[in-house]
Design a protein around this nucleic acid. Structure first.
Length: 479
RNA sequence: GGCCUCAUGGUCAAGCGGUUAAGACGCUGCCCUCUCAAGGCAGAAUCCGGAGUUCGAGUCUCCGUGGGGCUACCA
């Protein structure tokens, strides 16, 4: 079997959205699964929609997410150039060839004439008017410099059929396909033409793209056939939806990969999640690394129906990745968000990581979770009263001075020594564990709930600060 | 409007003629527990509708309904 070659061919019209990224991912997974090559091609034939900087975003997003391409504009390859605007002459050359083969023709119709072709519904349908032009008339128009486009010559009868690896057999009557424009009056090709020429010239074996091309594929096949080229294998992908009736799109302001990274999602979880949107390994495993995805990826698992993007589930996955991180790995990956908190540089980040790991799903939750370490101050002493814990302010008044005494005596102030001290207190005062634990935790945090308990927080704060806070709370109680 | 296409809980999904219709997220409850989490256990919740085919249909066929796409000198 020939070597598999797939491509991702985005147009630089803005950010790379989630749907596009998934298309890229599947193309990449399929190629790698079969030991093939994955190619990046930039489709910038629509100069009007070009957005400055979007090509770099495409490069960065793919690289950052681990979707590495073997050939592309910025890394080269044997089938370049990989930017369509740089291939303009190639298209014109092939368009002329297609005209000779009868698959296309020059069209000199003025927009005004096209306008008159609209039906009552306002739908346009070209009438093959210029197909009837004689060789002489064409030559003359060309010589006079009459603006022209090149149109595809679609048969008036017959049916175009092909087999899609996801959707099965697809048939479209040629009478339902218009003689679309292949080369625009500015000399640039349309997608409809460029994709065929490039996919063939670049040796693409499997065309993986969204379903928006499902029904237009027969007209591409017409060209492959006219040129005498082998048709590629088609794999169309269902769309990713924002809700039941709207596609996920950047135009609606829906989040992109970059946005999610900025929101603190673990990168791997984003790729992992979108891999699962429209594809299933058919096992119960959901958390998969990129290399596992390559290993398990299979066309059989691709779904035909649209999938709604569920950020809640992606968040859960992100949390799963966070839980598996070592403390130092967490500190490294969460750096930006740790810096946004008030505790950066003041506390042992590895210890904070240990406390946070099971309590957050995305890194942006960090500041809110730990800022209390720096925001200690006046708080409602009603917090000392907790029915289930059987604590109240009287117990607090009794416990806190003795806790202070014990803590003050500790030479080394760590989890174990604090724990022993607190347990001694429990026994001496004949109280329940919870009564003492809760009371001290509230006294040093001023919070109803905190990530971690007394020992963790006291250790983090250090002996001096812990004692200061206990004093503060005793004062508060005696007011 | 025409053409293509899709349809299992709120969401992602398994299923590929015979199952008590997996699993996950989310939700609810319980356990554990110094709080919040994590973890463990349990629970509620699904085959779009109607005709067929068949001994038997979530699975096959047709019709309807609903969603998406195409119908651009956009991709």
């Amino acid at each position: 079997m020939e070597k598999v070659r797939t491509r991702f061919a985005p147009s630089p019209t803005g950010y790379l959205h989630i749907g596009g990224l998934r298309t890229a991912l599947y193309g990449f997974l399929f190629a790698k699964k079969h030991g093939g090559d994955f190619i990046l091609r930039i489709e910038d034939t629509d100069t009007a929609r070009y957005v400055e900087g979007s090509v770099d975003i495409i490069y960065d997003t793919l690289k950052d997410s681990g979707i590495i391409y073997d050939e592309g504009p910025d890394i080269g390859g044997n089938f370049g150039p990989y930017i369509q605007s740089e291939r303009k002459n190639i298209y014109l050359e092939y368009a002329k060839k297609l005209i000779e083969l009868g698959g296309a023709y020059y069209c000199f119709c003025a927009p005004e004439r096209i306008e008159t072709l609209k039906d009552k519904e306002g739908n346009l349908r070209y009438d093959k008017h210029c197909l009837k032009l004689s060789k002489e008339e064409i030559e003359e128009n060309l010589k006079k410099g009459v603006p022209y486009v090149i149109r595809q010559n679609v048969p008036e009868k017959g049916t175009g059929s092909y087999h899609d690896l996801v959707y099965g057999d697809i048939s479209v009557d040629y009478k339902d396909i218009e003689d679309g424009i292949l080369i625009k009056s500015d000399g640039m090709p349309t997608y409809n033409f460029a994709n065929v020429i490039d996919d063939h010239l670049m040796g693409i074996t499997h065309v993986i793209r969204g379903t928006e091309y499902l029904s237009s594929t027969p007209k591409y096949n017409l060209m492959y056939d006219a040129f005498g080229w082998e048709r590629p294998t088609y794999i169309h992908l269902p769309p990713i939806m924002k809700d039941a009736s709207h596609k996920l799109s950047k135009r609606n302001g829906d989040a992109s990969y970059e946005d999610f990274v900025n929101k603190g999602y673990v990168k791997e979880s984003i790729i992992n999640y979108i891999a699962l949107l429209g594809w299933s390994p058919k096992t119960t495993q959901e958390k998969m690394s990129l290399s596992e995805l390559i290993e398990k990826f299979s066309l059989e698992g691709i779904n035909k129906s649209p999938a709604i993007f569920d950020e809640t589930k992606m968040k859960w996955l992100s949390g799963e990745y966070i839980k598996e991180m070592s403390d130092s790995e967490f500190v490294e990956k969460a750096d930006r968000f740790l810096k946004e908190s008030k505790v950066y540089g003041k506390y042992d980040l590895n210890k904070i990581a240990a406390l946070l790991k099971t309590r957050i799903e995305i890194f942006s939750e960090i500041p809110d979770k730990i800022n209390f370490l720096e925001e200690f101050g006046e708080f409602d002493i009603a917090l000392f009263t907790h029915k289930k814990m059987k604590t109240d302010t009287d117990i607090a008044k009794a416990v806190l001075p003795r806790a202070r005494e014990k803590f003050a005596k500790l030479d080394s102030f760590n989890f174990d020594t604090i724990h022993s001290a607190v347990m001694e207190l429990v026994q001496e005062m004949e109280l329940k564990n919870g009564q003492v634990f809760w009371t001290i935790r509230v006294a040093i945090s001023g919070k109803e709930s905190t990530p971690g308990g007394v020992m963790e927080i006291a250790e983090l704060l250090g002996k001096e600060e812990t004692l200061r806070r206990i004093d503060f709370s005793i004062n508060l109680l005696n007011k």
